[in-house]
């Protein structure tokens, strides 16, 4: 199984993609580690993580086929 990842704002810019698929990981922490390895620029950035359109806190298990969103804060106005 793979997971769909949707990226927003500066995260999408650093990943150079708004949507990617990665191999299933067990948790959001594992996924984050995988993303940091693949996109080192993400390590310095703050972003919230949503699983199936719910913001999750800390480490969360990922069900097969989950949709994950990476949401950086915006400051412009």
């Amino acid at each position: 199984m793979s997971i769909k990842i949707k990226a927003f704002g500066l995260i999408a810019e650093k990943m150079d993609a708004r949507e990617i698929r990665v191999d299933q990981t067990k948790t959001t922490a594992e996924l984050k580690a995988l993303l940091h390895e693949r996109y080192p620029a993400l390590e310095k950035l703050d972003f919230a993580i949503a699983v199936d359109r719910r913001i999750v806190n800390d480490n969360t298990p990922l069900e097969p086929g989950a949709e994950v969103a990476l949401l950086p804060p915006f400051s412009g106005g």
Binding site: L10, K44, L45, D46, I55, P72, P73, S75, G76, G77
Partner: peptide, 16 residues
Amino acid sequence: RDLYPEPPAGNLIPDC
């Protein structure tokens, strides 16, 4: 703060 607990460090997020 439930969404973003602390302000991002430094000037990492560019403004418009």
